[in-house]
Amino acid sequence: MKPFIHINALTVAEAVAALAAYDGRARLNAGGTDLMGLLKDEFLPEYPQAVINIKNVAGLDYIREEQGMLQIGALTRLSDIASSPLLRERYGALAEAAQAVASPQIRNVATLAGNLCQDVRCCYYRYPRHIGGPISCARKGNGPCLAVKGDNRNHAILEGRKCFAVCPSDTAVALALFDGQLLVAGSAGERRIAVRDFYTPLGNQLGKDELVREIELPAITASTRQTFHKFTLRKPIDFAVVSVATLITVVDGVCSDARIALGAVAPGVVRAAAAEEFLRGRTIDPASAARAGELALAGARPLSKNAYKIEIAKTLLKRALLGHPPAKPSQGIVHDKCPHVKTK
């Protein structure tokens, strides 16, 4: 990697001060699993001058309940979220989403806030400098979105405008389901941003001197049914082709509350409001589940190669509502000594 100035921030205030001092030319490093790729491939027009290490900022690694709210420190690692008994029991969709990220080694260091703030995975945007790149594009403020006429198999089917890269975060999908809020610290003090509003067409709402300090989720009644389904070509490592998180409350056989969040289909996380509304007061059965899928994707406008994502999203949602398991349990493989030798 090209050299950079390395700063160890020990408090949120130090980190904010360093961010402010570098005025957009510094990057925060928590788990580093996204940042290292950005630094190594040098795909951005400007290389960061400084890296601010926030790993050692004290008191940002927690999962706790305060006054009915669930609070998760920004630096809480995905492996801890995935294995937290509290989250497993009450916020299962979040634990599942964290478990669905990348690989064990990544989850051991990657943080929740880092997962939310990671950069997009668009193949044009991230094309590496050292093999004839980087490539200019709308997201970099220079030219059109190349995915529109290019290979857009992983791009947005909903809400794409200037840039069709999708939000790559799995945990954002679950957090949006829970109406999660980000507590953001900056030079001007703290503010709250709803996770579902966090992503903008070309990035996110964080100012140059801001960082996510905490993620807060409202209380969940214990009787909800939650799912997180992530469709990928293969199980670990991959970013979602489509993900769907659902939270359903059923009272006397009737859906009293339905929340549906879709991931990897749009630049941000999508809450399927029409489908949620439709399900409330209804019985969830194959017909209503299928209808919810239609409503959730009604606004989809696919590009040349990504209409398949609509079908997958509808299917994932339908199956989530009907309670299908996300994937079949991994099968045991033959354990005897191979090869089976047949001697003539």
Binding site: P128, I237, K342
Partner: peptide
């Protein structure tokens, strides 16, 4: 441009998805 010149976007088989293989050798 080759758009998947990295080992996330170029797909390879992982431990999580191993089908049973039988090798019959005469």
């Amino acid at each position: 441009h080759i758009l998947n010149a990295n080992m996330i976007d170029y797909k390879w088989r992982t431990f999580s998805e191993l089908p049973p293989i039988d090798n019959i050798v005469l």
